[in-house]
Design a binder for these strands. Sequence first.
DNA 1: GATGAATGAGCTTTCATTCAT
DNA 2: AATGAATGAAAGCTCATTCAT
Lengths: 227, 227, 227, 227
Amino acid sequence: MSSAESVKSVVTDPKLVEERRHQIISAATKLFSEQGYYTTTILQIAREAKVSTGLIYQYFGDKDDILFLTLKNVLDTYEQEIPRQIEGLTHPVERLCRAVWAYCAVVDAQREATVLAYRSTKSLRADRRVLIKDGETRTNRMIEKSIRACTTGGFMRPVNEYLLGYQIVNFAHAWALKHWAFDDRFSLAEYVEEGLQLLVEPFLTAKGKTALAKIAKSADAPQQQPG
Amino acid sequence: MSSAESVKSVVTDPKLVEERRHQIISAATKLFSEQGYYTTTILQIAREAKVSTGLIYQYFGDKDDILFLTLKNVLDTYEQEIPRQIEGLTHPVERLCRAVWAYCAVVDAQREATVLAYRSTKSLRADRRVLIKDGETRTNRMIEKSIRACTTGGFMRPVNEYLLGYQIVNFAHAWALKHWAFDDRFSLAEYVEEGLQLLVEPFLTAKGKTALAKIAKSADAPQQQPG
Amino acid sequence: MSSAESVKSVVTDPKLVEERRHQIISAATKLFSEQGYYTTTILQIAREAKVSTGLIYQYFGDKDDILFLTLKNVLDTYEQEIPRQIEGLTHPVERLCRAVWAYCAVVDAQREATVLAYRSTKSLRADRRVLIKDGETRTNRMIEKSIRACTTGGFMRPVNEYLLGYQIVNFAHAWALKHWAFDDRFSLAEYVEEGLQLLVEPFLTAKGKTALAKIAKSADAPQQQPG
Amino acid sequence: MSSAESVKSVVTDPKLVEERRHQIISAATKLFSEQGYYTTTILQIAREAKVSTGLIYQYFGDKDDILFLTLKNVLDTYEQEIPRQIEGLTHPVERLCRAVWAYCAVVDAQREATVLAYRSTKSLRADRRVLIKDGETRTNRMIEKSIRACTTGGFMRPVNEYLLGYQIVNFAHAWALKHWAFDDRFSLAEYVEEGLQLLVEPFLTAKGKTALAKIAKSADAPQQQPG
DNA sequence: GATGAATGAGCTTTCATTCAT
DNA sequence: AATGAATGAAAGCTCATTCAT
């Protein structure tokens, strides 16, 4: 989103740059996810995106740039989708639960890409790595804030919000990272449900539990994100 | 250990094979951890291990073999060290807490290698990947069993042992994976302590809590593993 | 000039062809001189000339064409400027000295381009190379003729006019080629003066020396060419 | 010779390095001379040297390294061969004439390579270019010193030794650079003879001329260098 | 058993040239 | 006439692997 400009393009028309980059990044995301960064060649990306190799270098400076924007794209989805899902909700407990739901759903929607982010962030140039980590940190802060709203509101007993936030994030990521183990044990809905039992419910106060019960009755699953 | 034989060596003397492989894997672990699998060359490994490139091919079939035994080595350490640390302990709660401790300590001792395992398991040939995942599964079972011992013993209320086990494992791994974020917030001891607060304590029954209190008073940190 | 037609243009209007080619060749001369032929890209030339890459191919068939007209342009300057400078002068010794002056001055005015001609003539297609060498030969004949006029007039003792001509030309070229060595030893005027001492004066007869002395008294430096 | 060590080699055995580099540089000299630096590919050099492309990179860091050692080799021949030819001679005039002879003979023996040096020195990295120019400067000093010995000994009238030295060097180089023009007019011997008439004889004193006459009677041409 | 020189397939990247607009 | 996005052949270089010593 913001730092896509750090990648130089020979082509100037922003509309075209947007379109072509999207096309190339889609191909790259698929191939990087399947085969990894180093085993994917530029030629493969070009073929998958149905363009020439030369064209790729009109929109990206080098292979590192492609990885960067690919990962950026994944993380940006987190950063946009989760707020979008809790937007409009007012009750802190509902917001937290929905955030967990949203996070897991986004991970589910781009499971392979999430694994890619874990595997390949270190392959980035150091300065880029920092930008990716910043994105991750911001998403974490979001979850952390949702937790704090619960404790502040008296719906949750005092906890280490920072660390609980991380545990929730890890829980969501695990849906992608350990999918080989989870796939035949849980549906996504079951997974989230069980997760809330482990990571939210135990910390709720009586007041919090009442709230939770009420929420559970009304709306269940959140909207799936389109992409 | 067990499946080291799946890697063919032209040298027959088992003693020598053991020794040379150890030498080479140490070098590989260091370099793979620092730079990643694909960016590390056989020549670099040879230099680091102070042997010739040719020698490496006397003890490993190809580069994939080196990665495999490197990762195997990391996971074997988990599988050996954690049981070693809870060996002799009898109380289920103590065994669980100590297992968490042990896991985090082992991760701490080979932080870079743990990150490596996350990054590079997918770079392995499919058949090898399965073996690595088996190792992980066994370690998970161990934690799971420790939890079940607590619930069975009435020290813990019923929980999804499988998933809580995974959360604990993820928590330990996170010490390596998110060390860039945790390093200036927690010491290892604080991290483990907070982790127990989030992942064990909330599920303890009154009886379990009493047990925990007693344990805390006596021994604190477990033995560090040597290497 | 004459053989510019050997370069095909898709644009027909001769006025426009002349103008555009001039624009492009100016840019090419600068870049080729600075960086060499092969390291200069069409895109760089286009940017420097403030046109598109496509436009270049409307006025030149290929990159070789650009180099050809660039070099042709440099040599044409020699062929035009030197006659212009001795035009109107009648005394053979004066004409010769002024020709030396003129040659060195032209080289000085396009020092980088002269070096380019030395470096890059061989990069031309064989048929073009011949045309360039023809231009050089004609310029040499000019100097040679000036010398012969001196010997015929009894101002110079018999010499190998052909070879002395070449020495004079080389002397002029050296001002460009060895500028890194000469720059902090001679001004252009000093260089020419010393050159005349080595390459003209020794061959003058008594009559020739008298003439030279007279010339030296009157006009000193010749007119600088404009460009 | 001296600065060959500035080129890094993966292979350590100095004997082998010497041999292989010789083999590769011979091939490169031929191809660079014929086709120029940029149009010669590593694959062509490898084929010509009957080695693999990979091997070349065991003995040279990059293509620039090959050019550097190729040019260095040419200039080193100048620096070694000329002193070798005047070694043992005592009379200043004889030494100078023989030096001119030697220079022209060396140029003749590696005519194409001399042209290459003119064309391609600028293609070198800046730091390397300096080293090449240093070599040229040293050779020039040698000629200059030979001239000075003549003036000091009263065999030559005072001249600008520096510039005359350069003229002599240019004269020798011209045998390569303008060979297309000279080839059907002069043999090497005639060329040198005429050169001495233009660049040495005119500056000799009466005493110098006597000396020259005596020399001319005895030995004529110098020994050809073997290579 | 150990060495390290040699190989060559395969990668990323560049850039002259074309052509639809 | 002019543009500049698109092409793809070709280049330099790397590195896993082999094998003669």
